[in-house]
């Protein structure tokens, strides 16, 4: 009997201290502790590997009907880069723009918009899911990223495809993103130059933006200038693999 009472008392005290941890200030303090967030962030690797395992290496996002297309696809993130170099390109209709492909490739490339439009293309009506929670649907047409990579020849040590963009993000340099090689070879991963059968406008990332349909909106880099194949993204920006990743968002944006 006394044993039961003792263990009850111990348990109550344990519960009370757990409850104390749960108070708001306690939680906020815990969240600002590095070791605690390291434990929390172990879930990202778990989500990534489990989602990969259960959905296969070449998942295909649902494609919608013309009638599902959003009337006004939301203009999000940068909608008009104000830097002179970009505005000059807009002024002459991207005639001088070319896409640079470099890094761990056999043959670095410089592709004009016309050359990009000659590559194997894909048109898809897909859903864009913003990390904030909203979704829009649009029809995208673009060159298959796999076709670009095949021409350049990806070296075996390459693990990620980096996208460097024209839009400056204040103190943090320009927007950039990264996806892995299997993601780059998913059939719906394209460099889109059209939205809803129209040339991609500045608001949506002219002249090209990435469409990587199995991940969230912040992966869909706009205003792409240069693609680089790398074995690690640690040396770019703050080392997390992308502009929003550097602000604390997960690199794996499939969830």
């Amino acid at each position: 009997m006394t044993d039961v009472k003792k263990s009850t008392r111990r348990a109550f005290m344990g519960l009370a201290s757990a409850g104390g941890l749960l108070t708001l200030t306690g939680c906020d303090k815990l969240i600002s502790t590095p070791w605690f967030m390291n434990v929390i962030d172990s879930a990202e690797a778990l989500s990534r590997s489990v989602q990969r395992a259960i959905t296969g290496s070449r998942p295909v996002a649902r494609e919608y009907a013309e009638s599902d297309i959003s009337e006004n696809f939301r203009q999000n993130g940068t909608t008009n880069p104000q830097n002179a170099s970009y505005q000059t390109m807009v002024a002459n209709g991207f005639a001088d723009w070319y896409l640079e492909v470099g890094g761990l490739v056999d043959k670095p490339l410089k592709l004009s918009l016309a050359a990009l439009r000659q590559l194997p293309a894909r048109t898809q009506i897909t859903r864009h899911d913003c990390v904030e929670g909203w979704s829009d649907i649009a029809k995208w047409t673009g060159a298959k990223l796999s076709a670009v990579l095949d021409i350049a020849g990806v070296k075996p040590e390459a693990r990620y495809v980096m996208f460097f963009c024209a839009d400056p993000m204040g103190m943090n340099g320009n927007y950039y993103e990264s996806i892995d090689i299997p993601g780059a070879y998913q059939p719906q991963t394209i460099l889109a130059y059209e939205i809803n059968d129209q040339t991609l406008p500045v608001a949506h990332g002219a002249p090209i933006r990435l469409r990587y349909e199995t991940q969230l909106g912040y992966k869909q880099a706009k205003y792409i200038m240069r693609i680089e194949l790398v074995d690690s993204y640690a040396k770019f920006g703050r080392g997390k693999g992308g502009f929003w990743e550097d602000q604390g968002y997960e690199w794996y944006a499939g969830i």
Partner: peptide, 14 residues
């Protein structure tokens, strides 16, 4: 169902 990757693997959820 809010995960785009899971949607791609299990479209019946949509």
């Amino acid at each position: 169902t809010m995960s785009p990757r899971v949607d791609a693997g299990f479209p019946f959820l949509l």
